[in-house]
Amino acid sequence: MKSIAARIYAFLRSAALTVWLVGLFLFYYLSMAVWSNEAFGMYIVHLSSNNLFRGFYLLFLSNVVLRLIERLQRLWSTRAQFILQLPLLVGLLLFLPALFLSLNMRKTLRTPPVGMGDIITVPHGTEKYQIQSVEPALKKRSLRNEGAAVFDYEPGLMLLDPQGRTYRVGAFPPSPVGSTYMHVLTFGIGPGVELKKGREVVFRGYIALQLTPFGNVDVFDNSDLPYKFYLSIIPNSTIRKGKESANTYDLEKPRYNVTVVKEEQTILNGETDSSIRIDENLTLSFFTPSDWVIVEVVQDRFLPWFVLSICLICVGIVPFLFSMVMSKLRAK
């Protein structure tokens, strides 16, 4: 019994097993890369869903962990080398299990476009957070030229939990909020829209549209009406100086290009910053738009370990190489 255990242990810590498992991964990757374009992406998906892939990964994990621990034990006698190699080796020791656990245990929610006052409910949990405010990625009044970046700032939002605590969430890095990490994935402008049939208001509210970068066309419709409304934000004015020109945008009162399509026929194309008459009866009006964001909410206890492992690996590469060179020189 003891000898069987010893043989299993010897097998698990052998360099040959590392070579075979790496070779197997390379064979898989090469074969997949020839016949499909997303070989590595597919591998990551398999790692979180396919038991065969999980099995091979766990075998590799135990092999590498045993070998790293043995290496650290060997290095203990030469303290300088131990210290120099420790960050990289510990980084690797953390990286492999953190990646596996993170991939398999992570719960993710991508909210629909949300704005001020909306509630974000954590996936598979009871935590709820209300959006107090959205920090826009665009200046409310701006002068933009041809090569301007899509956004002026990284967007963000302020959240409020039921106990009255507030959290600021930006785009990167993700912020810890309760048991989750949150960050803003994208930002947009939701025009305030009112559709009136005669004196009756058919619809009034904000519509989350992708109108950035300015000029982007997005579309919305209303189930009660046979129209499709294509919108884009156009400059409120254009300033020209010689050959140079720049556009001014006022996001408190943006100017829209509106195209209305009925049964594949364009029935109206016009520009407005207030309202536009579509037919004898129907009017489309705009009021001050609201900002919206899509938030990614992630429950992952292993994310800090994963990030820490990457930091340790990055930090540890140079001292590791230095230690290898030093040991070689000392051997000579």
Binding site: A39, G41, E154, P155, F172, H183, L185, F187, E296, L303
Partner: peptide, 26 residues
């Protein structure tokens, strides 16, 4: 492509959003 995919997957894991949303410095 492999290098690009590894970096991309790492960024997805550490929750880096699409680049237009990031500040120029980041």
């Amino acid at each position: 492509k492999l290098v690009h995919d590894v970096i991309h997957q790492t960024f997805v894991m550490i929750l880096v959003p699409d680049h237009p949303v990031l500040s120029t410095t980041t």
